Amino acid sequence: MTDTALHGKAFDSRGRVNREVRLVRHPDGALAVGDLEVVPAEMPVMAPGRVLIRNLLLSVDAATRLRLDPISPPGYLPALKVGEALAGMVVGEVVESDVEGFAPGDLVHHDLGYRDYALVDPGNQALGVAGSLAKLDSELGPPELQVGLLGMTGLTAWAGLFEVASLKPEDVVWVSAAAGAVGSVAAQLAKAHGCRVIGSAGSAEKVAYLTDTLGLDAAFNWRDGLDGPLAEFAPDGIDVYFDSVGGEHLRAALDQLRPYGRVALCGAIAGYDGQPPSAPENLFAATTKDLNLRGFLAGTFADRLPEARAHLADLWGSGRLTLDLARYEGLESAPQAVVDMLSGRTIGKCVVALG
């Protein structure tokens, strides 16, 4: 199969076109659209032991930002070099396969997103074990559901609440970034489990979404303050804090948590733009209150994905859980989608439709 560049795009002998999103420069503070570019890329050529996949729906995740600085956090995935293509979870359709168990037409997920076509080695993962190539059950739902609620987004929320925070029905739960992809699932899961759930977000529109659409018990705009609303909506304190923000949000949670409270540290988006927030000055509250603070990566619980997926699919099928989409069309829109998601301009799961 011969690849030929025509009109600035990469074509193969079958007329298939491939492009990818690359890092133009390391961001100076907040990510800008110009820090990323969509460029023609060589069309992958089928090879032994590989699976050729046409990517369909890209998951746009906040954790991608951690790899765009010159140095990524210690223990995390390596930082991307300038000119290197981004990686991300994606749902795709198998075009050709030389791997047993994968056949043309199969719906799969893998971690070589941010491109139209990917040649995947099932033994290698760009994002660790959580990004392993796997076949999806199309009967569970469409790609939109598989990339979000039934994918790593749903697993992160599920594992954080049930495995990390040991959620109990009588708990009072605060979820930060509750209008985002993971936060919205976590908030609904806690509500479905019988908890009183308080959500915070960064705009009046999102606050209304949390109460009117997701049915949370209370919600507030963190830009108007943290301590006052938490004292108002949880006068006796909280038992669980699902943290996607860090910084001042974690400080407020430490003040509000009751003895033996639990914190699931999912992320720290307050420090994703190159200026990590200072550690909470009240961290000793974790000692005096006998709190359990645990950070986690969704990939740690990759073996629990079938169990989480079954639970989430059951709640979705019964109408007790939903996942709204911020949908962008075409790979060319991916840089804008990443910027919008990181800046808080999207609600629910941010995805880019590729095919």
Rank of each mutant, 00 (worst) to 15 (best):
D239I: 04
N18H: 12
D98T: 14
S138V: 14
D111N: 05
L77C: 00
A134P: 01
L86C: 10
G113K: 01
A218K: 04
E93V: 13
G88A: 04
P27E: 08
G141M: 03
A30S: 13
G274Y: 13
L354Y: 04
L140R: 15
A5G: 00
M46W: 06
R50G: 02
G29T: 12
E205S: 11
D111E: 04
Q275E: 10
L136P: 00
D106M: 11
Q256R: 13
G330Y: 10
V207N: 09
S72N: 10
G183I: 02
E232L: 12
G101F: 07
V172M: 08
G274T: 10
K168M: 00
A264D: 06
L68G: 04
V95Q: 12
A252R: 03
A252G: 03
R327D: 05
G123M: 03
L112D: 11
D12Y: 02
P277M: 06
A192T: 09
P306R: 06
A63H: 05
L112H: 14
G148K: 01
A181H: 03
P48T: 13
G105S: 11
K81W: 01
V173L: 07
P229A: 01
F301W: 13
G83D: 00
S184R: 01
D69Y: 13
L342I: 07
V172S: 14
I71S: 14
P78Y: 14
V182I: 13
G131R: 00
W174M: 10
A264E: 02
Y76E: 09
D28C: 07
V172T: 15
R22C: 12
G148E: 00
L230Y: 11
F102R: 00
Q275P: 00
D217K: 05
L315C: 01
A62K: 02
Y209G: 03
A310V: 03
D290R: 15
D239T: 09
L354C: 04
K9I: 07
K81S: 15
S138H: 13
P169S: 14
S203F: 06
D324Q: 10
D121R: 04
T213D: 12
D212G: 01
M89I: 12
P70I: 08
T287K: 00
V172P: 06
A253E: 01
R54W: 06
A201S: 15
G141C: 05
F102Q: 02
V60T: 03
A253T: 04
A118W: 02
